[in-house]
Design a protein around this nucleic acid. Sequence first.
DNA 1: ACAGTTCTTGCAACCGATTGCAGGGTGGGT
DNA 2: ACCCACCCTGCAATCGGTTGCAAGAACTGT
Lengths: 332, 332
Amino acid sequence: MSVTIHDVAKAAKVSPSTVSRAYTMPELLRPDTRERVLTAARKLGYQPNKAARGLITGRTGNIGLIVPDLSNPFFPAVLKGAQARAREADYAVFLADSEEDQALEEELIRAMAKQVDGVVLCSSRASDATLSAIAKDTPLVLLNRRIGAIPAVLLDNTGGARQAVEHLAALGHRRVAYPNGPPSSWSNRTRRRGLKARAAALGLEIVELGTFAPTFEGGLAAADQCVAADVTAVVAYNDLVALGVQSRLRDRSIKVPGDISVVGFDDIPMAQMGSPPLTTVAMPCERAGRLAIDVLARRISAQPPRNNGGNAHEPLVTTLIVRASTAPPRRR
Amino acid sequence: MSVTIHDVAKAAKVSPSTVSRAYTMPELLRPDTRERVLTAARKLGYQPNKAARGLITGRTGNIGLIVPDLSNPFFPAVLKGAQARAREADYAVFLADSEEDQALEEELIRAMAKQVDGVVLCSSRASDATLSAIAKDTPLVLLNRRIGAIPAVLLDNTGGARQAVEHLAALGHRRVAYPNGPPSSWSNRTRRRGLKARAAALGLEIVELGTFAPTFEGGLAAADQCVAADVTAVVAYNDLVALGVQSRLRDRSIKVPGDISVVGFDDIPMAQMGSPPLTTVAMPCERAGRLAIDVLARRISAQPPRNNGGNAHEPLVTTLIVRASTAPPRRR
DNA sequence: ACAGTTCTTGCAACCGATTGCAGGGTGGGT
DNA sequence: ACCCACCCTGCAATCGGTTGCAAGAACTGT
């Protein structure tokens, strides 16, 4: 079938061990033998079988990545960065979509753990206990979630929320709605906390609204509650929700930003394409994805999970992008 | 480290072979032995090592999926379907983004081929020759591309294009622009062909415009050429381009659909969120992704690539979704 | 020319599974 | 009580690599 190390060995008239060494410890071979082996390998189109190698080295050369929902453009963006960086580091990436389902996610993690050197979990919905347990025997990196000493790549949600509140305060808003995202989401918790902290300091009132699906449809539902709450601005859990809110408000002939200002989180591509274009807190998604791979790769090669610090990184900076969906509130 | 078949064997007081058989040929074992083995396995949390198994069976249980650009929502949608179906069929999926780069894509295919049982190529930009060569020794399924007898899942671009033209014709448009997508794209070729065929039949004129990147930015660039071409409607290569066109037209204070109607392809989520919401040809992306996996799985288990027909499937039906971005042309 | 190093390379065991083959146990028929 | 199937189960080889160990080659210095 495929060309194996034995074929190359025969062609180069050496033993399989020598062929192996030509790849893994080239400096041990006499230059001319190494050359002979590599030439033969190239001629035959040989490529080492990663699975077989992994069997003995314990390294598969694969990493897993789990996201809650591929339909949220935030995750493809992260994925794009992660996948690119993984390729540079010569890792292949396994992808799974957990469909926002905690049980499924935990099952996926366990299934993956066997086949990969490490796993990146994006906005994981799994329980702290489960993740801590898994982290004990599988290198894990969390993206947008924080649990004990598990390495994590974080985005500065709090800072973003702060900027959003300051922006709205400067425009003169006093009463702002926040429709919650999934309760198990770290992003939701930190965004809410950031909002409330800064709002309290500036004398704004944040009206929390029930939890909504982090989707366009969730935003449609949230919109009506925002209107009922009699606010002049909405900071949505994320851009999808914000777009849903905008859409529903338009259908109800409520002007954005005339009657209600809307702010989102993420700055997904469609945020700028809407009308009005959405004011939102931009997240460096691809960079976060890349960084997650870097952290994981480092964690994998450093056998002893060094218990000194360096696990929790500074959150990646986020920036408020002001577009046309925010304006001063209408005078009563 | 991890619990192996030997550990289970010891715990159940049987040989490793028996443990193996408990999983792969359970009917060969006496019910009580099988039960004893499975119980022991469960207690120890044993899960067979896929890599080791693959070494001997020749099946890895993995499939590869390559897309040209994760930032185009069309592909995450396909991916979502494919990934879900793969999981049901107990396959893990390797993902790679070829960044619209032909050379990179070909390299990725080769690299993957070694580690998977088969590969799904979405809107592949690779050359016919390369793909035919690879298809000889790796099960391949093409999505939105057609080459000889390589199994493919196709979306009915021609039919979609036909509907778009008929819609515009009914509205009274006589001169319609088509900004081309990537020349290596099968979708671009079939969409263009469909448009021109139907336009000829209905006495419309299709003005082809140079090739543009299949992105929002590509659309920005295309818009100006469309205006210069003095058309009353634009059928864009895909929704991203259509949204780019809309955005640029708005910036130039050209009304959509008042001055120019815009039609897209794909019906990505943001098509309905824009303003005006975009008239577009909807593609059953997730279904296509799922189907691709089905076809691949069948192709993998049917060792002899049966040379009877059944390779090329009927294209999946597409439907024109009429929204607010199309209207009768302004009277001169 | 010879003993002692240092380099290179091959041998063989091993990673974690699967599977053909054969041997031991069981049960049925007489 | 004996023979013969048949059913289970274990042994050992194998998949494609890697790696500790040791033997042979080459080189050093005298």
